[in-house]
Design a protein around this nucleic acid. Structure first.
Lengths: 240, 240
DNA sequence: AAAATCACAATAATCGATTTTCTCTTGACG
DNA sequence: CGTCAAGAGAAAATCGATTATTGTGATTTT
């Protein structure tokens, strides 16, 4: 029963493995570039070019791309290669609503069934997150201990007591997908000025108090705010 | 606004594309074998062997396997190759509970918000399903118009009015994962003797009546029954 | 001038050879 | 006896070459 701190790769960043294959390395690198929008949505991903850039063979790139397709970050069409999955505002709305639905579900279950272990993990995640200033959220890439990484860990800990692995997997998928929209919003001129700290704090306290209604509404407004910010950011994208 | 009957690839079987690349063909074939447990859970998938069997190169197989990893039907470990994702009873329970949670959510939304189009699609899916005897569920592989295919289409239609694409995607994922357990149960000596027809009928009628509570409980017991059958089937697997 | 056609360049898909990493066996050593 | 280590064999990962497809733009046809 692996419980607490191990390698402390909180989650968002690549799984524990310290890169055991070239393919994995390329996959991780591309993934980070996509998550942060350094590789913009819709961008063509020419295999030969990438192979040169990473100094590996075509096959390695191809397989890395296949994995990204699996993750939903890249799309492929037979005979027409790969491209970064496009983003659009309609998808973001769908994503956000689904996120609220799923996490509400999971959060309720966690609060109802979560034991001491859940509480401990949640507190730990919150303690770690609170110490990193939100300003660092713009860090180039997520890595162990980065704000993005701790942010994910916090939200994962919130629903970590629900007892349903599949639900948590979906939560993760949705979180990662949203990450790209967040990156987009951050790069926009309007920036994102928000008090993430107090939003998270409210969430944390309501959860620890097992106050379902407060927690659930805090969650919904937290995500609603994210949606608003991204919408504003996308509406006024930086000049080409 | 693509609405009604087109190619009528109801869903479970491979997407419309008539196999545009070798890789896609291998992927589809392996996928079908895994879904039906012709390739048993946990089975090693040696690349060279598969390449010979399908008469294609290593790369093609490798990429097909990568895609299956994405689908969750295959797992891979760097340097140690691929194997069919194992099944276990704990996962099935998780899967079933999550399924009930998610579909309940989606079904409620559909009933609350679904319009005439939703009703029409649902009726169409039900009419198609009711005409195929459940006995044919044992058909070797899902294909357009097979019971498995129509069964999926029916459940997809049920939640098709929820308005959340992500939720529907998850519904699909869960359905496909369950398909493997169903196959397992069918192959077991205890078989699965059940009145799927009336279970589906009850579901259909409650949904059309917009009777949320009845529909939701019908859904839960429908899946609960599936769980029970599979459990029985797995407990008494056919001899090695 | 617009549409259809053809040849060429660019890019993706596929292949089979080569290199690297694991795994299993055999035998020495504690 | 059980543990550990070296080495042969098997399998996976990687590579770069080859083949097939697509897209483009010039050329021809209506």
């Amino acid at each position: 029963m692996e419980t607490t701190a191990r390698t402390r790769s909180s989650g968002l960043t690549a799984p524990a493995a310290p890169v055991r294959s070239l393919t994995s390395a390329v996959h991780a690198s591309l993934r980070a570039d996509i998550l942060t929008c350094r590789l913009p949505p819709g961008e063509k991903l020419p295999i030969a070019l990438l192979a040169k850039r990473f100094d590996v063979s075509l096959s390695a790139v191809r397989e890395a791309l296949s994995r990204l397709v699996a993750d939903g970050f890249v799309i492929s069409e037979d005979q027409r290669g790969f491209r970064v999955t496009p983003l659009d505002i309609r998808d973001l709305e769908d994503l956000t609503r689904t996120r609220i639905e799923i996490e509400t579900l999971a959060l309720r279950r966690s609060m109802a069934e979560g034991g001491a272990e859940w509480e401990a993990n949640l507190r730990e995640a919150w303690d770690a997150l609170r110490q990193v200033p939100y300003a660092l959220a713009r860090q180039p890439a997520p890595h162990d201990g980065s704000w993005a990484d701790l942010h994910f860990a916090f939200h994962a800990a919130l629903v970590g007591g629900c007892g349903l692995n599949w639900l948590m997997r979906f939560q993760r998928t949705l979180f990662e997908q949203s990450e790209r929209y967040r990156a987009l919003a951050r790069s926009a001129p309007s920036g994102d000025e928000r008090d993430a700290h107090s939003e998270h704090l409210a969430l944390f306290e309501a959860a620890m108090d097992r106050d379902e209604e407060t927690a659930v509404s805090a969650l919904a407004s937290h995500y609603g705010r994210t949606l608003g910010l991204v919408r504003a950011g996308v509406a006024a994208p930086k000049a080409p």
